[in-house]
């Protein structure tokens, strides 16, 4: 897969590189998105938008960062913008977005967590979005802080602090519930 310099590639070569990129990274990105949006259908939409953006921006990828970092950044931006659009649509509704997301999660046929895992999801969804991102990337994906730092463009120290704040809140929620 040669994505560092696609400007000299033919259309077929570009499509082939893109196809390889999708097959290599789709699973990691899907789970990154899914843990934020919770429901499969939403994760599918955001993942699709992520790769469409990547396809459109392929010529602008200069190889300064790793492909995975570049794709994670796109996926993270797409996820956050999806969530903020969802919130904006809910502005006139009496329902709480997080509450609605949990209801959808419980109704989602693609959620197979037990009661404890559902409770953990309820705790995680109370976190601010960026803290939730950091918590998921560290807790579920066990991603090194250095890699998170490149994706989220935040210092390792700030990420560590953010993770511990988040974990403390989740722990408190689980104790109280």
């Amino acid at each position: 897969m040669n994505l560092a310099n696609t400007s000299g590639q033919t259309a077929d070569e570009k499509a082939k590189s893109f196809s390889e990129m999708v097959r290599t990274y789709q699973e990691r990105l899907y789970w990154h998105i899914r843990k934020m949006v919770l429901v499969h259908d939403d994760a599918n939409d955001v993942l699709q938008n992520t790769f469409m953006k990547a396809w459109k921006g392929l010529d602008n990828f200069r190889g300064d960062s790793q492909i995975s970092t570049w794709l994670y950044r796109i996926a993270t931006n797409e996820t956050l913008s999806f969530l903020s659009q969802k919130k904006a649509r809910m502005m006139n509704s009496f329902e709480d977005v997080e509450e609605l997301m949990l209801q959808n999660l419980q109704a989602d046929t693609y959620f197979e967590g037990d009661e404890v895992q559902l409770k953990l999801q309820k705790a995680i969804i109370t976190l601010p979005e960026k803290q939730r991102l950091v918590f998921n990337m560290r807790f579920y994906d066990e991603m090194p802080y250095e890699e998170m730092s490149k994706i989220l463009d935040t210092s390792v120290g700030a990420l560590k602090a953010s993770y511990h704040h988040a974990a403390r809140k989740v722990e408190d929620f689980l104790i109280k519930e």
Partner: peptide, 10 residues
């Protein structure tokens, strides 16, 4: 609670 992935896929 553990960090097992509670989600599944089609």
């Amino acid at each position: 609670a553990g960090n097992r992935n509670p989600f599944k896929l089609p």
